[in-house]
Nucleic acid binder design. Sequence first.
DNA 1: GGCGACGCTGAGGATTCGCTGAAGCCGACT
DNA 2: AGTCGGCTTCAGCGAATCCTCAGCGTCGCC
Lengths: 225, 225
Amino acid sequence: MRILVVEDETTMAESLRSGLEGEGFAVDVAADGEEGLWFAAEVDYDAIILDLMLPKVNGFQVCAALRARNDWTPILMLTAKDGHLDEAEGLDTGADDYLTKPFSFVVLLARLRALLRRKGSERPVALVAGDLELDPATHEVRRGNTLIELTSREFSVLETLLVRKGQAVSKQEIIEHVWDFDFDGGPNIVEVYVRSLRKKIDEPFDRQAIVTVRGAGYRLDENGG
Amino acid sequence: MRILVVEDETTMAESLRSGLEGEGFAVDVAADGEEGLWFAAEVDYDAIILDLMLPKVNGFQVCAALRARNDWTPILMLTAKDGHLDEAEGLDTGADDYLTKPFSFVVLLARLRALLRRKGSERPVALVAGDLELDPATHEVRRGNTLIELTSREFSVLETLLVRKGQAVSKQEIIEHVWDFDFDGGPNIVEVYVRSLRKKIDEPFDRQAIVTVRGAGYRLDENGG
DNA sequence: GGCGACGCTGAGGATTCGCTGAAGCCGACT
DNA sequence: AGTCGGCTTCAGCGAATCCTCAGCGTCGCC
């Protein structure tokens, strides 16, 4: 197990190093975000322990940069403040867990082990079918390179189809996943949304991602049509 | 994405509802554990947000009951106390993640998304007889490599035969499986559909998968004819 | 060989299904 | 108040599908 520690305070960094090495991990230490990114590019670590407050490039930025270059190494984020916003922002930029300073070494170890155990079952962030891509976090949909504007309902319908791409999903099932309990309209509502989705993601590209399966519902083509 | 919130405090429940709906989720709220279990039985939710402290049936019990009835919907547990024991107990009874009150909405959202992301799409198995293959999920039927277009009724009839391949199934049984109870036509309808099935899955391939068992109904050959 | 019951078959009218444009409604924003 | 965008309902249309029916073939039994 090889761990990268990105931390600028030397005392903290060294105590992490010795503690983790004592537990049998191989440890590299980077002193700022830039160096951290460089290390991470060179070596395939099993996990990264990342301080939030760093010189040059901060923790969020490191995290976002790694994910952007398609590196899904588990990240344990260290934050000095107790702000809930920090935590959320960390998870949203792609950290897998966070720890608020001060913390005991035992806790860190436990969280780290949990991360390593989980590894592999994570990601990818976006739902994909061929060149059709949907990101639940940012609410963005693209076909190849072009960004497509969807309303919130359209988005939800496409999402449920995409989660079960390749399978036929009945209108009733779609309604159950997209609308809540007190919706009492008929299945025609799904037809209407499928229509407007097709106008946006199929027709302009001369493709057919959403296929009608008569009597059974709709199916999203696994290859995007 | 449809979410069930099980929470007795109305202010909390309503703020969760409005917040989640604002993010494009469909939300149902249950006020106690009993109601929560009932809702979960009725609808196939994408995730359940479950308060620990509940009237009637508490969070642990709800969680355990769901898992016991083989419902593996991802569960995000909300706990008021900060005790690590709670956390551990929650994970043990089958919660997928936990969150300690008070928390910020952004954090909840991030965790929820992480849960939904992790949930893999499971693929049901296809029914097979020789080189004849029927996939209930995609509504696809193939003979060897060639895809065969069936109407909804034809599909259902073939499905009931395939489920009991090797056995003779009477027309009456087929009618009971395929048509609803207010169907009052005669058994000839089955003959008609068997005929059109044979045209599509037997004749083009010069095989005979569907065998007539005079006086007893039809039998699907286990080897596909 | 003849008879009756059972199964096969083709055709066409009735029905359902999905598609589509338009319009009413509501909340948000100006 | 007015406008805009999104959500939902509705009704008409065309096509795919469903079901009935009537005539014919075949099997089993006497």
